[in-house]
Design a protein around this nucleic acid. Structure first.
Lengths: 346, 346
DNA sequence: ACTGTCGTGGGTAACGTTGCCCAAATGTTT
DNA sequence: AAACATTTGGGCAACGTTACCCACGACAGT
């Protein structure tokens, strides 16, 4: 019977006693701090191994670092985010940092709560993926804790950003469809409710990129946008709306794969074939898109690279909180699959 | 220019001074501890609001609780886990607990590291989803920190478990297919490499359930299993293997939706139609399965309920670490869609 | 009046670690 | 040989919170 043993944790003091050095010495070795001889490091490391010592993050947090990085994801169900996360962990490699994910941030209020809780937990830095808080609030947070913002097209002196060039991404899709002969190309956007940061959000930029690209091809008159959300439901209702137009679009460009899935549902329900009657394109190149049953043409955002860059910038900022801020902008690529083809001959 | 303000954090001492009470009193109010009058609670709450005070989890962790729960997910890319997580957060409702996810646990070694890091961070309790560590190790961990294990069919005196009845789930699929007239029903399993916990892992139990159900229908001779992994790749290679048999199966039951997707890829590549030539069923009823392009027959595990139960049990165990352990077993249901149909007439 | 109980509030010593400073030993320059 | 710089190690006081214990007054039952 496993009786609840008292199980006192091994502390830095135990290690110091066992290695016959001071606790300060052990602490220095742990942090690779200045002032340790190879001989001492060796002794301390042996003692740590002997006793199976592990530092308490709580105690560390009270004085120094916790070696914990937080990543806020807006929606874990979106298959795009795991890729970013893989990039983050890869970039951290064999540093001492541990990544923790904070989930469930629907809306500005929940987001603020989540961020606060990460600060309360003395995290060394945070990566915020597509936050919806106003810019001023983000700057306030970045003043408290090293912060990297992913996805927002913002520029700040105190936080770094990593984002994809959504204007270029939208243009890739439009160019591809126009190249196939399409003219009536509709778009489904995610309508952001918070007005304070509209022009910074990637979804709004994608819609703007769509408009610009359409105009670039002299197709101003064909611009047609359904304002919904980046969800399956949003794609579904958006597509139904577009399919009720007097003149049907020959192609629908959804701002996210997850919405494109809803579009495909609605198109199938309307008895139309893809890509015979109508072409569909998505954005994010999630694992969905690659399945042979779906085979969705989509824009690849290099999520892995985004995550890797974000983590790198965060580590740099933790090391030097006064360094100049950086803005990384990545170029998307188009992955053409089987949901796009020339429009039906009239 | 946002100059880096010193920004000293508001502490419990500031609150005590502002409310003209002792720090002990504030602490008691914060924890809803015994020995506080309504009048004092009122004063303290006002002071907290005035100053915008937030307790430091690090300092708390040194003495008491951190109000942080950890959830270890084996694979964030698997769309089944977000559902569990939603159940967890729902069950936590408006308690003070915050959930943090620890990602990236490929293999026993990485899993052990992840769990250790959660212990180091003084979390109040952890939920481990489908861990691969040996039973003895899990018991050791549960002796250190309140633990709920999800998915393992294990029984312990010190940790609680929540699992689906995978025997019944597999039987649902086999019964359904047999009812349609199938006899040659093949299965794709996830072969666990760690031998120490084989009979506890859900994947192995699903395979066993498949065998039992087949025997129950007198189809011992038709049992055919491809040992791969629960990944798209595993489903793909497994299906190719099964499609090379002298006598083709008329149905393939994959132990997970993600593997079933690979099966569909392989079947399409072989020029066979679903469900005309061959039926396919999955497990988990992920969002994949529901898409109209896929429309996969699958077993629903009630992920939300699993998460909700796990969180409830964890809170109970945190409140009373000596209470008797509980084992929750949930019943799966079958969701029939368009990938299963009667076998082709001979 | 004397004891015991209850409700209310506070004082104090941890918890485990690191930042800051200082001391001794050793090396290097004048 | 003296003065100075560098390396190596340690002492000590925080950091912000809670667990434990004690004090005080009010009130009830002998």
């Amino acid at each position: 019977m496993a009786r609840p043993t008292p199980q006192r944790r091994v502390t830095i003091i135990d290690v110091a006693r066992h290695a016959e050095v001071s606790t300060t010495a052990v602490s220095k070795v742990l942090r690779n701090a200045y002032g340790t001889s190879p001989a001492m490091r060796e002794k301390v490391h042996r003692a740590i191994a002997d006793l199976g010592y592990r530092p308490s993050a709580a105690a560390r947090g009270l004085r120094g670092q916790t070696y914990t990085l937080g990543v806020m994801v807006p929606d874990i169900a979106n298959p795009f985010f795991p890729e970013i996360l893989n990039g983050v962990t890869a970039s951290l490699g064999n540093t001492d940092y541990q990544v923790l994910l904070a989930p469930g941030c629907a809306g500005e209020h929940a987001e603020a709560r989540t961020i606060e809780s990460m600060i309360d937990r003395s995290m060394d830095g945070i990566i915020l993926i597509a936050p919806v808080s106003p810019r001023a609030h983000l700057e306030h947070i970045a003043g408290i804790i090293p912060t990297v913002i992913v996805g927002r097209h913002a520029r700040s002196t105190i936080f770094d950003t990593v984002a994809d060039d959504d204007i270029a991404g939208a243009a890739l899709v439009v160019d591809h469809l126009v190249g196939l002969g399409h003219r009536r190309i509709a778009h489904i956007e995610h309508l952001e409710t918070e007005p304070s940061c509209i022009e910074e959000m990637p979804n709004m930029i994608r819609a703007e990129g769509y408009r610009l690209a359409m105009r670039g091809h002299g197709l101003d008159a064909e611009i047609d946008i359904a304002s919904k959300t980046y969800t399956r439901e949003g794609g579904y209702t958006g597509a139904r709306e577009l399919l009720n137009r007097k003149r049907l679009p020959t192609a629908i460009f959804a701002g996210a794969d997850i919405a494109a899935m809803g579009v495909l549902d609605a198109v199938a329900e309307a008895g139309l074939s893809v890509p015979g009657d109508i072409s569909v394109a998505g954005y994010d190149n999630t694992t969905f898109a690659a399945f042979s049953q779906v085979s969705l043409t989509s824009v690849d955002q290099a999520g892995w690279q985004i995550g890797a860059d974000a983590a790198r910038l965060l580590l740099e900022r933790i090391a030097d909180r006064t360094r100049r801020s950086a803005q990384v902008k990545l170029s998307p690529t188009l992955v053409v699959r089987n949901t796009t083809a020339p429009p039906p001959a009239r």
